[in-house]
Write a protein that binds this DNA or RNA. Sequence first.
DNA 1: AAATCAATTTAGCCTTGACTAACTTTAAAA
DNA 2: TTTTAAAGTTAGTCAAGGCTAAATTGATTT
Lengths: 145, 145
Amino acid sequence: MGDRSVPHARPNKAEVFARLREAHAREVTEDYVEMIADLIEEEGEARSVALAERFGVTAATVNNTIKRLERDGFVTSRPYRSVFLTDEGRELAAKCRKRHEIVYNFLVALGVDPTTAEFDAEGIEHHVSEETLRMFAGFAGGKRG
Amino acid sequence: MGDRSVPHARPNKAEVFARLREAHAREVTEDYVEMIADLIEEEGEARSVALAERFGVTAATVNNTIKRLERDGFVTSRPYRSVFLTDEGRELAAKCRKRHEIVYNFLVALGVDPTTAEFDAEGIEHHVSEETLRMFAGFAGGKRG
DNA sequence: AAATCAATTTAGCCTTGACTAACTTTAAAA
DNA sequence: TTTTAAAGTTAGTCAAGGCTAAATTGATTT
């Protein structure tokens, strides 16, 4: 147990920032698999030109990122062809989409303007723990039901 | 007005991600000025060994970051001496601390465990707009009063 | 005063995530 | 079928933010 017996003991700062850095490392991956899933749904396939347009980056940047996602097992791709999600990628995309919606709906339920909520949700979603996500879901749900 | 006359028009995705990238670029700066202010308050000065310990990074990393903060006008430093905040740095630190507290108190008011709230607040705070921050502050305040 | 130890700095390396410019491939039009 | 335009790729650059290892400085002991 170490020095953690005090009620509400503050976590070690270094732990907090270590977790923050881990979250950062996952962010781009999560945004990409989510966007790829959206594109496949909306347009039937995910072309890198569409990814570049939606993220507001160049085609070269998309290319680099897709290679990394492939290396990490989230997508498959062949030269000059569109990008596909692996099972793992699809799973992650589904999880991220749910989380995004919960955060967005929570902000709107709280009274935040929907446009602002879109901006904020995109940043916040990657840093919300399971526990906090449950609270968010419960709050928005309670307001509806 | 362009194509923004529809109620609740979704913002362009590229804008959302551009703002996200801007927020990222500010994160480390904000965390450092806040931590430097804390150290000066708690210990009278901000030594890089203390910064390294609290962030959970090496002294070399702290050194790099401090140089960047100095370049950007948030701190001053002299070799082998502790770090000082400029007026701009102090201002930013105060703003960040207030924001951090609002986010943390909001999460706790919502029912999130204080330890989890510490972790989540550190990630969330950098992505909360002024508008959302006001909603957070109002929510926690309303519960108290 | 010298030795030692802790703190700081420097140098060099790595990955991520961005860019531009130039090149190749694919698909569509002439 | 050839040409052209759009899409995708490759190569090279850069800054941020991490690291290790080695050198230096400052402060404390002996």
